[in-house]
Design a protein around this nucleic acid. Structure first.
Lengths: 213, 213
DNA sequence: CCGGACCTCAACCGCTGGTCGAGGGTTGAG
DNA sequence: CTCAACCCTCGACCAGCGGTTGAGGTCCGG
């Protein structure tokens, strides 16, 4: 169910989610037998929590207040940074940022599970497959296929169809090819590290080229 | 000496200030006998620290990085708040747009600032520019250029040089082209949302194609 | 009827952001 | 010269946050 968050936020765990529930940040429905059942809205809520926690360092207490405000229809108040102090001669300090943690156990989904998880029509999936965006490995799919299918579906709502996305596939293929070329076929650890770097590069390049808001 | 901070921030104490010094956030001068001597700049620096700590909940580690950035002549990168989750028990709609928080005020760096921020040699930057990975806008660069340069430098350590990265540039160009094609040249908001989607797609595709750990 | 995934609840943990106090030097008024 | 009032350092200690771990039990598909 929730490995889809895991592949957007490397360090989310079941216990973390349960903890967040205990803190009152999400309130998933329950089955008759007590199992948690997360709706799309719950997942989105968690995505929000994890994002602001990671990117804005907000304490959960504050995030909770914001969520409360949002639920009541308000927008969370965002405090702007104050004026900077005048500078001084100083020593260095390097920022670090990673985020490509391999999810421990790779998900294996049947076609049916994938369709359900991504909430797409079978024809749509077939289309994705004919364009090479999703590929089965034997008769199962990896967790990333969910993300691909979901995102492709959202893009389709904007009129961007799978066939328009072929370039993404070839770009990704080339990217991985490049990585494997330097690491050799099987240097674990390094591969992920390089992938994190190239993905970061890609993202920065896209942002840089976007028309300024 | 420093009760003047105390009447702006009720809970500042001597021990707190000493603690902040131990953490490297301020470095007051000392008298011959070892007493701290705070300059006006030190006080301002402390004011900044206390303010962002109180109002933006930033951890000291991050504040320290920001101060470092300020010292190097940059403005602190303020992560804008992401889009709120569409709160409500609802049908599958997932208009997600996260993680692409446009930095509220776009950074403008001179060439020198960029070199310092990314910690790269001038020749390396020139190389990036000849391959179109970093482009100046007039005589300044955007914040993404820092990321591009840093990442490219890290990749160079693996033997991947700027000229190997041209494909990334063209991929990014095409990606942005696609986005602009559907949003029209100037539909703000949507552009960022779509960019977030395509970047997510890209990431998922790369992961999916990575050899399994 | 078994194995694996899920549940709860309480105990535990590491890190952050400090506080406290012992032991000792400095300074200035008287 | 003395004394009170500060200042210093350094190590021990602490509370709260954000989870993790594990014991003990339930649920369920094959």
């Amino acid at each position: 169910m929730l490995q889809l968050l895991q592949d957007e936020f490397a360090d989310v765990t079941i216990s973390k989610i349960r903890f967040l529930e205990a803190e009152g940040l999400v309130t998933p429905a329950r089955t008759a037998s007590g199992y948690r059942k997360f709706s799309a809205a719950d997942v989105e809520r968690l995505r929000y929590v994890l994002t602001v926690q990671r990117d804005q360092y907000l304490p959960l207490k504050v995030i909770k207040e914001h969520l409360g405000a949002i639920d009541r229809g308000l927008r969370p108040a965002a405090a702007g940074p104050p004026v900077a102090p005048s500078s001084l001669p100083q020593t260095p300090g390097q920022p670090v940022a990673e985020d490509f943690g391999a999810s421990g156990t790779e998900l294996r989904l049947t076609r049916t599970e994938l369709l359900a998880a991504a909430d797409v029509q079978p024809e749509f999936l077939r289309e994705l497959e004919t364009h090479g965006l999703v590929v089965a490995n034997g008769n199962h799919y990896g967790g990333d296929a969910i993300v691909v299918a979901q995102v492709a579906a959202e893009l389709a709502a904007y009129g961007i169809e799978p066939r328009h996305l072929r370039a993404f596939r070839t770009a990704a293929d080339r990217e991985v090819g490049l990585i494997e070329q330097v690491t050799g076929p099987r240097r674990t650890g390094q591969t992920e590290e390089l992938a994190a770097l190239t993905v970061r590069l890609h993202t920065a390049l896209v942002r840089a080229r976007l028309p300024q808001a």
